[in-house]
Every structure is written in C-alpha cells, then in structure tokens.
C-alpha cells in the first residue's frame, strides 16, 4: 500500500499541518507577564536601605583599614632601610679612617 502520487501525500501532510488556534489562555497570560515586567521598580524599604548602607560602610572601613596597615608597613620598612644605610655609611667611614692611619704609619716607618 502506498500514496500515489507523491503530491497526494504532500497535500495530506499540508492539510494535517494546518496551523492550530492558540489556546485563549496564551494571550491572557502573555499580557499579564508583560504587565508585570513593566511595573515601576519598587524602591527599597528603610531596613533594606539601612542594611545596604551598613554593608557599604563595612566594605569602605575595611578597605581604609587595610590601606592604613599597608602604609604603616611601608613606612617601617623604609625606616629600617634608612638605618641599615646609615650603619653602612658609618662603617665605610671608619674603614676609610683606619686605612688612612695605616697608610700614614707605613710612610713614617719608611
């Protein structure tokens, strides 16, 4: 058993695939969803604003404290570096003096 000719089968298929009417609920639900999407945005209530402010304050305070700590660390590091440089300068100066004295003594013995 077969469909003859092919056009007959295609015609049957075309009839079978006629558009279906959409359910009446489709448009109603769609318009409801669209309406909800267009509602003006609700402003946050007092406690939500307070919580947001506290969270923001905590973040900013944490950032400030961390920055302060970093600066103090850098300052201490710089002071230590300067101390080492000063010590090196003093040592270098003492060695130079000792070198000069040794050179003078050598010349006297000659």
């Amino acid at each position: 058993m077969s469909f003859e000719p092919t056009e007959e089968f295609e015609q049957e298929l075309q009839q079978a695939l006629e558009r279906r009417p959409a359910p009446p609920s489709l448009k109603r639900r769609l318009m409801e969803r669209r309406g909800r999407g267009r509602e003006p945005r609700r402003w946050p209530v007092a406690w939500e604003r307070l919580a947001a402010s506290l969270a923001l304050f905590a973040v900013l305070a944490g950032a400030a404290a961390w920055d302060l700590h970093e600066r103090e660390q850098r300052r201490q590091g710089e002071a230590a570096r300067q101390q080492v440089l000063t010590a090196l300068r003093i040592t270098g100066h003492a060695l130079d003096q000792m070198n000069d004295q040794l050179a003078a003594r050598g010349r006297g013995e000659e």
Partner: peptide, 24 residues
C-alpha cells in the same frame, strides 16, 4: 501571529504546555 508561533512550538516539542510557554 499567536497561532503560527504556538503551532510551530507545539509541533516541535509535542507538548501543549511547553509550547504555550515557549510562545509567551
């Protein structure tokens, strides 16, 4: 176009509820 959109979705998914959701 609701009939076109719904019918396309229905024939692709075979599910009326899902087709309606897709159409929306």
């Amino acid at each position: 176009h609701q009939s076109m959109v719904f019918s396309l979705a229905l024939r692709m998914t075979g599910d009326r509820g899902l087709a309606e959701e897709i159409a929306q």
